[in-house]
């Protein structure tokens, strides 16, 4: 029968081994040669867009890369779906955007902020998501070449 000290060894051993593998795999997937996100395309504008995304908590309603709220449209492929001018107009709208009756916050962004946001969403839209990009936004699917 298993003794208490064997049980403890199982716990400590299993933890150390899987933790080391986890760190190894993390380093592996962070390696520049394994990048799937077009890291080089992260411009100042994209970073600014990310900042606006975060300071307004867009993620509290929308999901991106499949993470976030489930209240409003997933935005990973929104540029493909709606086009940049439309997205910009939504961000600049003085009244809450709600064509289907569910309200967004009216951000009334200036040109500069709205463009940064669009650049960020463009960068997001080009990430290789291991196939999810074809599922997440069916309307955009047809526009993906490969």
């Amino acid at each position: 029968m298993l003794s208490k000290s064997q049980a403890r060894t199982f716990f400590l051993g299993g933890t150390v081994v899987t933790f080391l593998i986890f760190i190894g795999l993390t380093i592996y997937s962070m390696a520049p040669s394994n990048d799937q996100s077009n890291h080089q395309n992260i411009t100042e504008q994209v970073i600014k867009g990310k900042h606006i995304w975060e300071t307004n908590n867009c993620m509290g309603c929308h999901a991106i890369l499949g993470e976030g709220g489930y209240y409003a449209p997933e935005l990973t492929k929104v540029i493909d779906r709606k086009g940049a001018p439309m997205v910009k107009a939504i961000l600049q709208s003085p009244i809450p955007w709600a064509p289907n009756g569910r309200k967004m916050v009216a951000y009334e962004m200036n040109d500069e902020d709205a463009e940064a946001m669009v650049e960020y969403l463009k960068w997001i839209g080009e990430i290789d998501l291991n196939g999810f990009e074809r599922i997440v936004s069916p309307l955009a699917k047809d526009k993906i070449k490969d």
Binding site: F11, G14, T15, T18, F19, I21, F22, L25, Y28, S29, N34, Q36, S37, L65, G66, E67, I127, D128, L129, N130, G131, F132
Partner: peptide, 18 residues
């Protein structure tokens, strides 16, 4: 821990990593 640490990978399927 044996399952949960490496199980973190279930959040890495579709976010743009390997």
């Amino acid at each position: 821990f044996l399952s949960g640490i490496l199980g973190t990978g279930h959040h890495y399927y579709y976010i743009g990593v390997n």
